[in-house]
Design a protein around this nucleic acid. Structure first.
Lengths: 140, 140
DNA sequence: TAACTACCTGGAGCGCACTCCAGGTCAAGG
DNA sequence: CCTTGACCTGGAGTGCGCTCCAGGTAGTTA
């Protein structure tokens, strides 16, 4: 096996660590979400521990609905230096309120599901035809 | 204008009420998510108040990640009568735990964003070059 | 030396959830 | 009667985020 320095991860190891597939890692790099991944002899990628942290940030933002476009912008701002901090803060603040809203929406969803479940629990098997359709009453 | 009975909604009115576009309403119907929408003369759809409630349930489940395939299955179970209740309960219960997990994930995301924001707040404008990149330290 | 394995690149393909379009119908208003 | 506008249908198109593939290279193992 090709020698691997301490703290350096092969693509396979990186995929294992982060749960992001090798293809997706390359895709992120192509799209400008990850900069300058170092290379071993033969051109093989070697990811650092910092790369791991960065991927975890990307995934966290991505999984909460930030688009690839926005992630690219955020990454490029980071690469451009300190003067871009206000814009990065703006992006994070905006995304934060989006995520907070997602939480609120999902809390509503859980309550709706619970309501429907309690409806089914009450019904046991003595329900009439009114309950058979798509629209047993939802509004409490 | 074509006569509209009380409590009946034209496609345009339905879109307005539910925030779901006319095209998407038709798409849902084609896909079997909505059954037997009534028609006015000339074949124009007329949605009922029950349809409104059902669409709101669909959107609630859809927006929390239930796929069209699963929604179709859920809708068809509803149309098949009471004996499908156990399966519907199973689907809702499973989806519920997915949504709960989404909430937990998003709470983690908010904390991560707050951490990064507090990092920026501390930095004011006296930061060194170490902070410029993609990977200012994230782990507390 | 030959085979094997992990990785490389550029580019095509895919699944999902819509979204749009062409061409047509039909009731109401002028 | 003619125009207008909301709606109809079947089917094609779109954008996003991956995911896969062909053909090639470079170290390691037998």
């Amino acid at each position: 096996m090709e020698t691997t320095n301490a703290g350096e991860l092969t693509p396979a190891a990186m995929a294992e660590r982060t749960g992001v597939s090798i293809d997706t890692l390359r895709y992120y790099e192509r799209e400008g979400l990850i900069q300058e991944v170092s290379r071993a002899s033969g051109g093989h990628r070697r990811y650092s521990e910092d790369d791991v942290l960065w991927i975890e940030v990307l995934r966290c933002l991505r999984e909460t609905g930030m688009t690839i476009d926005q992630l690219r912008r955020y990454a490029q701002l980071g690469a451009q230096g300190n003067h871009t901090e206000p814009e990065r803060v703006r992006m994070l603040t905006e995304h934060r309120s989006l995520v907070v809203q997602q939480i609120l929406d999902r809390e509503v969803a859980v309550r709706l599901i619970d309501h429907k479940l309690s409806f089914y629990a009450d019904a046991t098997d003595t329900v009439g035809p009114l309950d058979a359709g798509q629209t047993e009453r939802v509004t409490s």
